[in-house]
Amino acid sequence: MTATRHGSVDARHPAAVPAGMHTRTVRGRAGKPLTPYLFLAPFMAVFGVFVLVPAVYGIWISLHNWDFFLPERPWVGLGNYTELFDPTSFVASEFWQSMRATGLFVLFSVPFLVTIPLGLALLLNRTFRGRTFFRAVYFAPYVLGVSVIGLLWQYLLNANVGLVNHYLSRLGVDEVIPWLTATPWVWVSLVGVTVWWTLGFNTVIYLAGLQGIDTTLYEAARVDGAGRRHEFWHVTLPSLRPVLLFVLTITILASANMFGQAYMLTNGAPNNETRTAIMVIAETGLEQFRMGRAAAMSYVLALLLIGISTLNFFLFRRQEKN
């Protein structure tokens, strides 16, 4: 990223290029060399104290059998990690079951969370009466906290006394649908609630992206005889690429960190099938106080997510080159 910034500096000062690397840098950063770091300092202080230090500390914890309240915290080396990859251990089976649940949730929710808001943003980007009202309406659920939407949908989706089943029975659906207690309904509920809750956020980002597209591109396309569909595929989508990458990445990360919805709605039912990785980590670390093991689990999850995000970036970059 620094490299691109240098590039733009070069472009504005073409004379500096032949002078070589050293001069270029000094001119580009005119003045005191520490200035940029001082600008970064307030952020770095917060980032360091609340992210970097805990993260490093977490590695240290994960190498111990660590209970906050017990006097002995024996060093176990990579024991917490090897245990997670030991197919005979109960911990591993619980952890990987939760990873599977997390993976399924990502798989089911991300396509909807990426496409529906895009369609919605395209609609809301048109000019029509009441546009602002609808923009607010679709964003509204996102304002609510997870405990609020959890409680709300718990009442609505309750199998025996819930409103959803009540109306379904009025419509002639005689079967009682176990929204919160049986597969595949639990996934329908969790994904549905999450999409309803968070689509406003992605929509707003898409909207900003859409408004940033140069209108002359559309004019040019129209001059060339492009229809609406062509405009979408050849102007809108390519121009949205950085926004798409951003939305896809944060949506995957957010879905992989899903906790509140499952905790409130299903609490892992049926038989821990909807217990997500974060739920297991929280239970292990903060309820049973097995911090070392929980830290190791967190690192496995984090490494996987870093891997997926990197893959994501590479895929988009390769497309860009093409």
Binding site: G48, V53, A55, V56, Y57, W60, F68, F69, P71, R73
Partner: peptide, 17 residues
């Protein structure tokens, strides 16, 4: 710096029981 800041944290032993 991060490692340095984490070190005193990890050095603190378990609580006195």
């Amino acid at each position: 710096l991060a490692a340095g800041a984490a070190a005193p944290l990890s050095a603190c032993a378990g609580p006195d029981l």
